[in-house]
Amino acid sequence: MDEVFEMFSFFGGLVNSLVIILIHCLLAIIKYVTPMTLWPKKSVAGEIALVTGSGSGIGREVSLSLAKRGCHLVLWDINDEGNQETGRMVRSLGAEANVYKCDVTDREAVYKVAKSVETEVGKVTILVNNAGIVSGRQLLDLSDEDIAKTFDVNTLAHFWTLKAFLPSMMEVNRGHVVTVSSVLAEVGIPRCSDYCASKAAVKAMHQAVAREMIIKRKDIHFTLVCPYLVKTGLFEGTSTRYEWLLNTMTPEYVGKKIVESIQTEQDHLYLPYLIQAGVLLEHVLPFRGQLVMEDFLGACAAMQTFTGRKKD
C-alpha cells in the first residue's frame, strides 16, 4: 500500500512540476518577444547602489544610468582618477556619489572599505559586480601569476563583495545583485582559457548563491549578465567575421540594459539578444558541430588580432 501511495505521489508531483515549468516557459517566451522598454519597471530611487569597476566602461555607464533613476551611488575602482571622474559625472546628474579606491582582489581591503561604506553611507541594497580583466594569451604563454590575477578579479572578488554586503541585504530582506559574467562563460575560445574559466566559475557561483537566498526565503533578486563584445577597450583589436550579425555594443547601451534588467527583475540578460540562439546551439550541438559553427562565425580566430586596452 505504501508503494502505491508513493507511486501516486511521484506522478502527481511530476505532473504538477511539468505544468509549473510550462507556465514559466510561456512567461519567458512572452518576455523574450516583448521589448524590455514595455515591461513594468520597479523604482530604484533612493536605493544605495555599489558598482565595482566604476571608473570606466560598463561600470561607469551603469553608475550614470542608476544616477538618472535616483540612486545614491557608491563607486569602487582601483583606478582612482577614472573613478573620481565618474563621481563628478554622477553628481552632475543631481545624484549623490561616494567614491572609494578599492582593490577588489584584496579581501581584507574589501571588508574594511565595506564597513566604511555602511558607516558613512548606509546599507547597500544594489550590488553590481562588474570589475573584470582579460589577458588574451594562450594557456602556455600565461604565467601562473597571470592566471591567478584573472581569477582574483573576475571570480574571487565576487565572493568577497557578496560576503561583505549580502548579510545586510538579508537583514533588511531587500536587495538586488548583478553579476557581470560573459557569453564566454558558455564556450571556450582560443587565447581566453583563463578568462572563459573565470567567467564560467562566477556564473556558477552566482546561480548557487541565488538559490541559497530562495531557500532562505529572502527577497533578494539576482541578475546574471552575459554580454558579447563591448567597446570598452578590454577586448580591443578583437574581430568577428559578420559584424552586422553580432555587432560590438557600446558601454552606454549595455549599461542602460543592465539597469533595465534590475528594474524588471530579470534572472538572465544576454546581449545582444540574438546571442542566445548561439548559446543554445553550443549546448545542443556535439563538440565537432560546435567547431564548425564557430569556424563559420570566425569565433575561434577572433582573438588573433587582440591588442587589449592601451596602458598609460
Score class of each variant (00 low, 15 high):
residue 10 F to V: 14
residue 17 S to W: 09
residue 18 L to C: 14
residue 21 I to H: 03
residue 22 L to Q: 02
residue 27 L to S: 09
residue 36 M to L: 10
residue 46 G to M: 06
residue 52 T to G: 13
residue 53 G to M: 10
residue 68 K to D: 07
residue 70 G to P: 10
residue 77 D to P: 05
residue 86 T to G: 08
residue 87 G to L: 04
residue 90 V to R: 10
residue 92 S to K: 15
residue 95 A to E: 00
residue 95 A to I: 08
residue 98 N to P: 00
residue 101 K to W: 05
residue 101 K to A: 04
residue 102 C to H: 03
residue 103 D to K: 14
residue 104 V to Y: 02
residue 106 D to W: 02
residue 106 D to A: 09
residue 109 A to I: 03
residue 109 A to S: 09
residue 111 Y to R: 08
residue 112 K to A: 14
residue 114 A to P: 06
residue 122 G to W: 05
residue 122 G to R: 08
residue 126 I to G: 05
residue 128 V to I: 15
residue 129 N to D: 01
residue 131 A to E: 00
residue 131 A to D: 00
residue 138 Q to S: 15
residue 139 L to N: 08
residue 142 L to Y: 04
residue 146 D to W: 12
residue 157 A to S: 15
residue 157 A to C: 06
residue 161 T to E: 01
residue 162 L to I: 14
residue 163 K to T: 08
residue 167 P to Q: 02
residue 167 P to T: 10
residue 169 M to I: 11
residue 175 G to E: 00
residue 183 V to C: 11
residue 188 G to R: 07
residue 189 I to D: 01
residue 189 I to H: 10
residue 189 I to R: 11
residue 192 C to Q: 07
residue 194 D to G: 14
residue 199 K to C: 05
residue 202 V to K: 04
residue 204 A to C: 05
residue 213 M to V: 14
residue 213 M to R: 09
residue 215 I to Y: 11
residue 220 I to R: 01
residue 221 H to A: 12
residue 223 T to S: 02
residue 226 C to D: 08
residue 228 Y to C: 02
residue 228 Y to M: 04
residue 229 L to N: 01
residue 233 G to M: 11
residue 235 F to P: 06
residue 239 S to V: 15
residue 252 E to M: 11
residue 256 K to W: 03
residue 259 V to H: 05
residue 259 V to Y: 03
residue 262 I to N: 06
residue 266 Q to I: 07
residue 267 D to G: 13
residue 276 Q to G: 15
residue 276 Q to Y: 12
residue 279 V to Y: 02
residue 280 L to F: 12
residue 280 L to I: 09
residue 284 V to R: 06
residue 285 L to P: 14
residue 285 L to Q: 11
residue 287 F to L: 14
residue 294 E to T: 13
residue 295 D to C: 14
residue 299 A to D: 01
residue 300 C to H: 04
residue 305 T to N: 09
residue 308 G to L: 03
residue 312 D to G: 13
